[in-house]
């Protein structure tokens, strides 16, 4: 584990050095991220200010949903940025070079190195999330522990999804569209999934399962989940991770090493 942490640190430092070679690109990227964040924030504020509540949630609660979504979304992008570059690795045949190294390939193709730009965005999101968490005033240690447990579960599901994308990339060389489908679907949960009617709500909660990823942590915080639902979400998280690992193993056996 210590060795992998050291490798992750080195990958991150090198990723930073590479990013630093393209300073103008960094500025545009940060500007784009900021605009997107402000647009969504503006949209949610208008929505809630004009309707007083959103499917029963107050303004502050809605913003906790919103910032929880952003924190999970930014964390996954920060951790799994390398997945977005995976297609090139497969089609060029450079993946071969990864597979002959004495480390688990996930350290390179899944994690790769911390995305410093997303790390910069994470700070303000965490600060705003903390502020609105304090505003809703339900922060007992039980609620907070449950919230954190469900956020970790969300990250496990996100990890599983990214591993599935990698496996599909190995099998079909298709990565870009799959990852964009994930991004688009996850945006369905930028506001609580309760705004959708059945059966869409159950679909986005349990099948996709964006609801479990983005909405359940806050619902846990607000005492809106019974233990059955919590257990179902944790089992789903674990099952999706095991499935993704199985699929990755299968994909490696089917790998044909393109590009050479």
């Amino acid at each position: 584990m210590k060795r992998y942490l050291k490798l992750y640190w080195l990958f991150s430092v090198q990723s930073l050095k590479v990013v630093w070679q393209h300073k103008t690109g960094v500025l545009f990227f940060m500007f784009g991220k900021l605009i997107r964040f402000l647009m969504f924030l503006f949209f949610v504020m208008i929505l809630v200010k004009n309707t007083k509540t959103l499917v029963g949630y107050t303004f502050n609660e809605t913003l906790v949903f919103y910032f929880t979504f952003n924190v999970i979304d930014t964390l996954t992008q920060m951790l799994f940025r390398e997945v977005y570059r995976f297609r090139w690795l497969v089609t060029s045949g450079e993946l071969d070079g990864v597979l002959v190294r004495p480390y688990h390939p996930f350290i390179r193709v899944l994690l790769g190195g911390l995305d410093i730009l997303d790390l910069l965005m994470l700070g303000p999101y965490l600060a705003l999330l903390t502020y609105f968490l304090l505003q809703i005033g339900l922060t007992t240690s039980y609620n907070l522990s449950l919230y954190l447990l469900l956020v970790v579960n969300s990250l496990i599901i996100a990890t599983a999804f990214h591993i599935v994308v990698l496996a599909l990339g190995v099998l079909t060389t298709e990565v870009d569209h799959t990852i964009m489908i994930y991004r688009d679907l996850s945006k369905l949960a930028v506001v609580p999934v309760d705004i959708y009617r059945e059966p869409i709500r159950s679909l986005v909660t349990f099948v996709l399962p964006i609801g479990i990823m983005m909405t359940y942590p806050v619902k846990g915080l607000l005492n809106m989940l019974n233990w059955n639902l919590i257990i179902v979400s944790l089992v789903l998280g674990l099952a999706s991770l095991l499935f993704s690992l199985w699929l990755w193993g299968r994909a490696l056996k089917k790998y044909q090493s393109w590009g050479s």
């Binding site: 060795r3 090198q14 590479v18 070679q21 045949g93 070079g97 480390y103 050479s260």
Partner: peptide
Amino acid sequence: ISFVMGQKNQLIWELPPRESYLLNKEIY
């Protein structure tokens, strides 16, 4: 083992080779 492919690049394109060697030092 080591696998060298003539037309494949294992070095980090933007950085000097020494950076890749230092990474390999830890990997191996």
